[in-house]
Design a protein around this nucleic acid. Structure first.
Length: 149
DNA sequence: CGTCTTTGACCCGCGC
DNA sequence: GCGCGGGTCAAAGACG
């Protein structure tokens, strides 16, 4: 935590932003790349297997909105949707579209409260915000961070 | 034209 | 050893 995430750059609300949640690397929690690809050479593997600092920044917060797509100022590209057990609604996966910015975002709706949307950020942005959205402030306001797990 | 969305298929790790 | 769940990627289509 020596280095505060660059999320929401341009906001002095850092004071209110104590919602930072640091998740330590767990054996089953460590998300590697190696995903699946269609058919051919996907064994690329990052060569380096988490031998060094595997700090996976995971920041999750809940927001009360009817839409899953909350514009926080970054561009997101949806790359998957899968249903989760215990959840009547499917979970959506988003990724930041920026050269070198491999930030992932996960959105899930609560079955108990369809109005509540859980947004989980993973990774750190390597570029400043492209645009300041007005809704951002509102989102930030409704942003209720909670420690995942 | 460029960008983004959606679905299916595939893969991996762990559990029993 | 096998199965399940979860997670990711690819391609095509749609839209502005």
């Amino acid at each position: 935590m020596e280095n505060p995430p660059t999320y929401f750059h341009g906001r002095n609300s850092a004071d209110t932003m104590k919602v930072e949640a640091e998740i330590q690397p767990l054996s089953a929690n460590n998300i590697s790349e190696g995903g699946g690809s269609s058919g051919s050479e996907r064994k690329v593997k990052t060569g380096q297997k988490g031998d060094k600092q595997i700090k996976k920044h995971r920041f999750a917060f809940q927001t009360r909105s009817q839409v899953d797509i909350l514009d926080d100022g970054y561009r997101w590209r949806k790359y998957g949707q899968k249903g989760v057990k215990n959840s009547k609604f499917p979970r959506s996966y988003y990724k930041c579209t920026f050269k070198g910015c491999n930030v992932k975002k996960q959105i899930q709706r609560l079955t108990k409260d369809e109005e509540i949307v859980v947004t989980t950020y993973e990774g750190m942005h390597t570029h400043p915000l492209q645009k300041t959205t007005e809704s951002f402030e509102e989102i930030f306001r409704q942003m209720q961070a909670y420690a995942p797990l």
